[in-house]
């Protein structure tokens, strides 16, 4: 009884599935569209969460405080202040960076666009600055507060605010994303189930004849399952194409037009590939689930 599925049998299933897809074109459009839209939202949310997480970890790994001095403060005054700063409790490392070093570092970070610095024509608009690491992350805020009180300081920057904000955003994106995805996913499953139900109904006479002719239950079920899978998979392909194209366009735009340096978008091809594969997998699963529901409920074999 364990016969390998014949090629012509598989051909038969595919043919039958395509035929009935052709018949219910409005339902097909609705279900493929819903799968596509829900997967696009899945894709966009995942990309957002991934990028935010990636950014957050990059920022968090250097939770150091940077204290920019006022431009009128000269190097001696700054070095004198170093002793002062060292008295603040909770400091692990204190490094003075004079404005020339700072400019060099900035040039390095700019990479291709370092000619922007050359355009300054030998002028250095940067202030002297201190890089400070706290002993413990909890100390960062206290140390930063103490630094801010010093009148020589222009600005005290530390990553924590940004990280906190990022985490708040990712949490929000995740929550809204999950709710929307679940709702749209249910709608997609429901629409596919309805499409398959229409097919089962349109072909009830044929199903009855197949049973009398001795078709096995699975032989009867396969074309319906295939139909759902085709619906889900097609929706997923549309979503993958849209998400990937717009993401690539977005990353290109960000790289070329917004000079964010450290804050650029993640452009890992493996990430995009894994995301695409996941979306196709989810789409196929939605299709199979939708048709299984209708097969169970309406295909009495």
């Amino acid at each position: 009884m364990l016969t390998v599925m014949r090629i012509r049998t598989i051909g038969y299933f595919v043919r039958e599935a395509l035929k009935s897809l052709n018949r219910n074109s409005w339902m097909v459009l609705a279900s493929v569209g819903t799968v596509a839209v829900s997967l696009i939202i899945v894709g966009v949310s995942l990309i957002t969460v991934m990028n935010a997480t990636y950014l957050a970890t990059r920022l968090e790994s250097n939770v150091e405080i940077i204290a920019y001095m006022k431009t009128e403060v000269n190097e001696e005054e700054a070095l004198a202040l170093k002793k002062e700063i060292n008295k603040i409790p909770g400091i692990a490392k204190l490094q003075f960076i004079n404005k020339d070093q700072a400019l060099q570092e900035f040039r390095r970070e700019l990479g291709d666009q370092k000619n922007m610095v050359d355009a300054l024509g030998g002028q250095n608009p940067l202030p002297h600055l201190f890089k400070i690491s706290a002993i413990a992350p909890e100390d960062v805020e206290k140390v930063a507060g103490a630094l801010e009180k010093m009148k020589q300081m222009e600005k005290v920057d530390y990553g924590k605010n940004v990280v906190d904000k990022l985490f708040a955003i990712t949490k929000w994106v995740r929550l809204v994303g999950i709710v929307v995805i679940v709702l749209l996913g249910l709608a997609a499953v429901f629409l596919i189930a309805t499409t398959i139900r229409l097919t089962v109904f349109a072909r009830r006479k044929e199903i009855q004849i197949m049973k009398i002719l001795g078709a096995t239950d699975w032989f009867i079920r396969w074309p319906f399952l295939m139909e759902g899978i085709v619906l889900g998979f097609t929706g997923a392909i549309i979503a993958v194409v849209i998400v990937d194209l717009s993401y690539v366009t977005a990353t290109d735009y960000v790289r070329e037009n917004l000079n964010l340096g450290l804050f650029g978008l993640q452009t890992d091809p493996h990430f995009l590939m894994a995301l695409g594969a996941a979306m196709l997998g989810v789409g196929t699963f939605i299709g199979a689930l939708g048709s299984s529901i209708s097969i169970r409920r309406f295909l009495k074999v």
């Binding site: 014949r6 012509r8 038969y12 197949m210 002719l213 078709a215 032989f219």
Partner: peptide, 10 residues
């Protein structure tokens, strides 16, 4: 069709 549904060969 009677042979197709019982997976007979082409």
């Amino acid at each position: 069709f009677a042979l197709e549904v019982i997976e007979a060969s082409g």
